[in-house]
Design a protein around this nucleic acid. Structure first.
Lengths: 224, 224
DNA sequence: GACCTCTTAGACAATGGCGTCTAGTTTTAC
DNA sequence: GTAAAACTAGACGCCATTGTCTAAGAGGTC
C-alpha cells in the first residue's frame, strides 16, 4: 500500500547511507559532521535524524550495510571458482584478480579495513560479526577450496588453514602498500600482482603436472 | 648553563609525546582532546601549548618522533641478520620473529599503520617520507639481502623485489588479522607464524641443500 | 634573598557540532 | 481534492573543545 512512499524513502535511505559511508570513511566517526553528510546526500539534516535516531545509529547502519554488500560480493567471487579446474594457474590467477578487484581493494573493502582500525575498539560487537562473516568466511572457504584441490592431487598441502592465509597474503603482497596509501590499482597491476602471487603459491604448494614423478618439478622452472 | 632546566624540559617533552601518541592512536586526530593528552602526560594544558603551538604541530611532532624510533628499530633488525647464514631456515625464522615483534606488530608499527590510514590523506607529505624510509627501505633492504643469498646459491629467485614483498606478506600472513583487531601476538604465536612463513618461502624459493642437483627438492619434504 | 624561567590551575571567549523544535513546502495515498 | 506523511530550511539550547590569558607556585642560578 505504501509502495511509492517506500520507494521514495528507500532512495533517501540509500542516498544517506552512501553519503555517510563516504564521509565516515574520509573523516572518521568523530570528525564526520552530520551537516556534511546531509550536504553530500542532498538531504536535509532533519531527514537524517528522521531515519536514524542519532549519529551512532547512522554509523552502525552504514557499517552493516557495507558489510552486507561486501559479504555478498565475497560469496559471489568465491562461488565463481570453477569446480573442474583445468588450468590451475590461470584459474587461480583469475580468482585472485577478482578477489582483489571486487573484495579487497574496492571501495567497500577499503572502507571496512579503515573503519575497523579506527573504530574497532569502540564498537567491538559491530566488527566482530564482520570478522566472522568476512575474513573468517574467506579463509575457511579458501581452506576448503585448497583441500579439494589437494585431494585431486593438484596441490600438496599439509596445513590448509595456513595455506589459505598465505594465499590471501600473497594475493595482497604487491598491492598492500598501494591500498594502504589510498591508491587504486589498475587492471594491469591487478593482473601482474595476481600472477606473481599464484606463481609463488604454486611453486610452494604445486605439484608437477605430469605423472612422471621424480622429474624436474616446478622449482626448476625458474627462468629468471 | 640551563642544563638542568633543559633536562626537565626534555622529560616533559617526551612525556607529552608519549601521551599524545597514545591518545592520538586510540582516538584519532579529531577526537583526541588536548585535555586528555595533558591528563595522560600528567602535565598542564598550557605546557603543551608552550611546547607546541597548536594541536596540529603536536600531531606532526608525534608522528615524526614515532617514525624516527621505528626507522632506527628497523635498521637495527635488518643489520642483525648474519652475514654468513649457516642454517638458512633458522636464521630467517629468527629474523621474521624479530621483524614482527619489534617493527610490524609492536606499538609504533600499529600506530603508524593506523595513523597513515586515518590521517594519510590529510597530511600527504608527512607520511610520504615514512613510506620511503619505512616500508620502502624495508623492501629494498630485503631485496638486497635476498639477492645476496641467491648469489650464494641458497635461494633461486627471478625477481628480488617481488620476492621481498612476498616475504613480508608471508611473515604477516598469520598475524594480519590479529593486529588488524588490535591484539598483540604471544611469543609462541610469533614463533609459529615465522616458521610457517619461512617454510613456505623456502618451499617456493629454496634450493635443495646438497650438490646432487636434480634430486628430489624441498618440494618432497612435505610431511603432512 | 633577588631573579628568572618553567609550570600549574583555572577562567575566558569563540567556535562548531549535535540533537530538538517549528513552520512551511512537497510528495504521496486514497 | 483532501488528508497524511515526509521533506526542507532555519533557529535554538547545549555541550565539548580549542587556544589565550592571568595569577600564583616551583625550582634553579647568581
Amino acid at each position: 500500500m505504501t509502495g511509492h512512499t517506500q520507494r521514495g524513502q528507500c532512495a533517501k535511505r540509500m542516498s544517506i547511507l552512501d553519503a555517510a559511508a563516504d564521509v565516515f570513511c574520509r573523516q572518521g566517526f568523530a570528525a564526520a559532521s552530520i551537516d556534511e553528510i546531509a550536504a553530500v546526500a542532498c538531504v536535509s539534516r532533519q531527514t537524517i535524524y528522521n531515519h536514524y535516531r542519532e549519529k551512532e545509529t547512522l554509523f552502525v547502519a552504514v557499517v552493516e550495510d557495507v558489510m552486507n554488500r561486501a559479504n555478498a560480493m565475497l560469496f559471489s567471487v568465491l562461488s565463481a571458482f570453477p569446480d573442474n579446474a583445468d588450468n590451475l594457474e590461470d584459474d587461480l590467477t583469475v580468482f585472485v584478480v577478482r578477489l582483489n578487484k571486487n573484495c579487497l581493494c574496492n571501495h567497500d573493502g577499503k572502507f571496512l579495513r579503515k573503519l575497523v582500525q579506527t573504530e574497532g575498539e569502540r564498537y567491538p560487537h559491530l566488527f566482530e560479526s564482520w570478522r566472522q562473516h568476512g575474513p573468517g568466511k574467506l579463509t575457511t572457504a579458501l581452506s576448503a577450496l585448497l583441500a579439494r584441490l589437494a585431494q585431486k592431487g593438484a596441490l600438496v598441502i599439509d596445513d590448509f588453514d595456513v595455506a589459505a592465509r598465505q594465499f590471501v597474503a600473497l594475493a595482497n603482497a604487491d598491492l598492500q602498500m598501494m591500498t594502504l596509501f589510498g591508491g587504486t590499482p589498475t587492471d594491469a597491476e591487478l593482473e601482474k600482482a595476481a600472477r606473481n602471487a599464484v606463481r609463488t603459491f604454486l611453486r610452494a604448494y604445486g605439484r608437477p603436472p605430469a605423472e612422471n614423478a621424480g622429474a624436474q618439478p616446478q622449482l626448476a622452472a625458474v627462468s629468471g
